[in-house]
């Protein structure tokens, strides 16, 4: 489920007006980030439309979700629309298990560092498939530079900050600092050639 935001009510309202609803709520990654109270308010606002609700951990786990669907079969049968509170993975799993039901999600999924929240970290890895960390003092320019630059800071780096937002540290400044510390400033001379964005998945 990872980190989600509840969608605006006006986006959902026209989809479900006067329909009977069954709700799936995933709490598996609640500790990562799930706005429990906001979701509760949203659900409370649906009132009489709700014919049933199942809260479970790890909606993305097909077997678990399948068991819950069996356990709540009669309520689900009655419902015209299934509403899902989870990340995009959970919503897709429910949708694929209930192929002939209309399934809507009430959440937008957010990106968190560390494989988008699976391993929440200060750092991030974009799984680009060509690790550049050996030339950048162990700081990733793909994940942390606003322009994914492989050849050093653009002209907008000032006082260690990225031009895009003063909240963002310029990773290239950090890289230069780190390499200076390591006595490896010469690696900056290396020309990072155009990146292969088409690295194949597991071979």
């Amino acid at each position: 489920m990872l980190a989600v935001q509840i969608k605006a009510e006006q986006e959902i309202a026209p989809l479900i007006s006067s329909k009977k609803l069954f709700i799936f709520e995933c709490l598996g990654c609640r500790d990562v980030y799930y706005p429990v109270e906001e979701a509760e308010q949203f659900i409370a606002g649906l009132k009489e439309g709700v014919v049933g609700k199942a809260s479970l951990d790890y909606l993305c786990h097909r077997e678990f979700t399948h068991e819950y669907i069996k356990a709540y079969a009669s309520e689900i049968e009655k419902a015209q629309v299934i509403l899902v509170f989870s990340c995009g993975v959970g919503a897709q799993v429910v949708s694929s298990l209930l192929e002939d039901k209309i399934v809507y999600t009430c959440c937008d999924t957010l990106y968190l560092n560390g494989f988008q929240g699976l391993t929440v970290q200060e750092f991030d890895c974009d799984q680009c498939g060509e690790c550049y960390l050996n030339y950048t003092g162990g700081l990733c320019p793909i994940a942390r530079c606003s322009k994914h630059l492989l050849n050093g800071p653009c002209g907008g780096s000032q006082d260690g900050k990225c031009e895009v937002d003063p909240d963002i540290p310029c990773v290239w400044q950090q890289i230069v600092d780190r390499l200076a510390k390591l006595g490896q400033l010469d690696t900056l001379e290396r020309l990072g050639t155009a990146k292969n964005w088409n690295v194949s998945p597991v071979s």
Partner: peptide, 9 residues
Amino acid sequence: YHGISLEEE
């Protein structure tokens, strides 16, 4: 990204 469980979605 995949979910916590290792599904295809």
